[in-house]
Design a protein around this nucleic acid. Sequence first.
DNA 1: CGTGCAAAGTTGGATTTCACAACCCACTCG
DNA 2: CGAGTGGGTTGTGAAATCCAACTTTGCACG
Lengths: 145, 145
Amino acid sequence: MAARGRVCSIANALAVIGERWSLLVLREILLGERRFDQIARNTGASRDILAARLRTLVEAGVLEKRRYEEHPPRYEYVPTEAGRALQPILLNLMEWGDRYVTDGPPPTVWRHSCGAEFHPATVCAHCGGAATEEEMRAVRIGPVL
Amino acid sequence: MAARGRVCSIANALAVIGERWSLLVLREILLGERRFDQIARNTGASRDILAARLRTLVEAGVLEKRRYEEHPPRYEYVPTEAGRALQPILLNLMEWGDRYVTDGPPPTVWRHSCGAEFHPATVCAHCGGAATEEEMRAVRIGPVL
DNA sequence: CGTGCAAAGTTGGATTTCACAACCCACTCG
DNA sequence: CGAGTGGGTTGTGAAATCCAACTTTGCACG
């Protein structure tokens, strides 16, 4: 792992969930899939890579591996708090993909409890105001090593 | 490129910005860096990979390559609208990394115009309500091919 | 008993990507 | 002239990925 470049939590986050397939695995987990075969089918990842990714996500504390059957031993993967906290990232990725990459209508659609079709907006957690570039300024930026 | 797996804008988005270094390049661009050497230094990516990433991001319409000097020819990379629309994703990634990965205090801190230290919250764009799992339900989910 | 099926992986080998250093070219500066 | 800078390309070797096949532990049928 390169220790070079800017000291940055984006880089640190990507070291955990930035490898290929990791976020698609999380997508399936947060859609409710918990089993190896199902995750393999729904993501398209090959089984060896999937096994490796699940291991690193468990080690990183994003998923928990739990035995749900003794004989024969069978396992499921459930999200930890850190795993559930990735949902905003996935929602924003989906929105961006819908807008700028996917041709045609969005493949997946959510509805919010307010009745409207759900689209994410990222706002200031304190005041609820928009998080545009003009509204924000960097107080401190991680240095480059 | 696997055409397998679920039809999903998250997968489509990751096909564009999910390769290694792509999001760190975007981070630097959105921090205001525009030049090849500076992006190389600040991300830690090797120059050959960086050249490849910049090419694919330009082809995907996320960045624009612009000549800013004729003799000798010099280029800068500026974000398109699609590139600027990635900011919420980066802010949420930073927040998640601060909380669950980075040891110690956040390396980078923003302040919102309301005066508070900035932390992102993802809400329903229509009503402003929280985007928790209980508040949302999937109307349609992309099929698995 | 033998065959088939399922879940959750592991193994071996080919292919692709990545990393690192070195090099190139067009200029500018001293 | 020689050194430095910006923006890359090339060559080589290491690492990661893909794919298909195999393994293990058990259940269910006939």
